[in-house]
Design a protein around this nucleic acid. Structure first.
Lengths: 200, 200
DNA sequence: GAGAAGTTGAACAGGGGTGTTCGACTAATT
DNA sequence: AATTAGTCGAACACCCCTGTTCAACTTCTC
């Protein structure tokens, strides 16, 4: 049922009507906000937030799960863009990495409880797999850092990437919970992760 | 398991019958296993696993949520015991910490998807709050390390504790997902966390 | 052994979300 | 203007799980 295509221009499969296209965008926006606010947001809530009927929702997304997947894909793509832009293949790895963290964590924190929503409705391994694309950039940077002697090599790259991924999300959660001031997170994350990556 | 009294704790008022006490224990055991296997385990499944009727389950636990809370409390208490035993108030902080990690992560990994179950059914802030007790021991150790100059002081203790908590769970997840070999985790966690704690 | 405490299956009430269908309506495309 | 795609509300059929009640039955306890 690959009927719903596509938001972002590409994929000119079946030409959609302008209002449909507009509504799909509205749904994704509304859903993102709803999930960010409440991990258990229902289709009814989302439809209302988008200013549409629930039926229209189902006309575009066959299930809540699919909608959630789309939202996740959208936000991950956004992150991936930022990460890619901030991780060139040249320059001192540590500094590049620091910049990378600082530029991408605000995005994460803006998504609020979306991550929780995803964790609740989707199997853990799928969630992780969907992060592969942006994490690949991180992995490349880390690997380069290792090769250049800037990062430690006594830990597997995959684990270091997992550490980055995990702590980034953890920091966002801490901010959401009010246990961490938003303006201090950049520095804290940078220090923490660079310490993890630095050679012993 | 210090499960002599009723789990309400409210007075020893009405002593429970032996078989009831036995069944409660069976329920908690079964529930722990079920949740470790499937984060969405239903009451029916758990009852069957405990070899009891579903009604009996509700006779002892008013709701699935309460049962989950009890299971969580039980496992956290177990962890807390291990952590406490492994974090004396004397000795080189780094070494004590290393030992602490090595002794408590296997437990975490044994709980499998219980953590996921908890995250799905309970609000995030409650989950975190319920970890306060064991984390307090970690916090004390970290604080001592800072005071003795063994650990870095340019990051808040709370964040360092969060880092420990988060990476411990992350490592368990990685093992469960088959992305990390169980036997290597101890070393990896130790290296990672000590690097995070070490002064710059 | 008697009576209380506990267990059991079946059966029900119920909710709350999900996903679907309908016919009527409205807006876009040509 | 005609055609077509899209929208809407309401109502439906769930469907699975939750939580409850019942009357019989079993096991403990004294």
């Amino acid at each position: 049922m690959a009927r719903t295509r596509d938001h972002g221009g590409r994929g000119a499969g079946t030409p959609k009507r302008a209002d449909a296209e507009r509504n799909i965008a509205a749904i994704i926006t509304a859903a993102t906000e709803c999930f960010a606010r409440d991990p258990d947001a229902s289709m009814t809530t989302i439809a209302k937030a988008a200013g549409l009927g629930r039926v229209t929702l189902y006309a575009h997304f066959p299930s809540r799960e699919q909608l959630l997947r789309t939202v996740l894909a959208e936000t991950i793509a956004e992150s991936a863009g930022i990460i890619e832009a901030a991780s060139p293949d040249t320059g001192p790895p540590a500094e590049v990495f620091a910049q990378l963290i600082r530029s991408c964590w605000p995005l994460l924190s803006r998504f609020g409880s979306l991550h929780a929503a995803v964790q609740r409705a989707l199997p853990a391994d799928e969630v992780r797999r969907r992060h592969d694309q942006p994490l690949a950039h991180v992995e490349r940077l880390v690997a380069r850092g290792q090769a250049e002697g800037a990062f430690r090599t006594d830990l597997p790259v995959e684990w270091l990437v997992t550490t980055v991924y995990t702590l980034l999300h953890a920091a966002a959660d801490e901010v959401a919970a009010g246990r961490l001031a938003a303006e201090s997170v950049g520095e804290i994350l940078e220090k923490t992760l660079l310490a993890t990556l630095r050679p012993a």
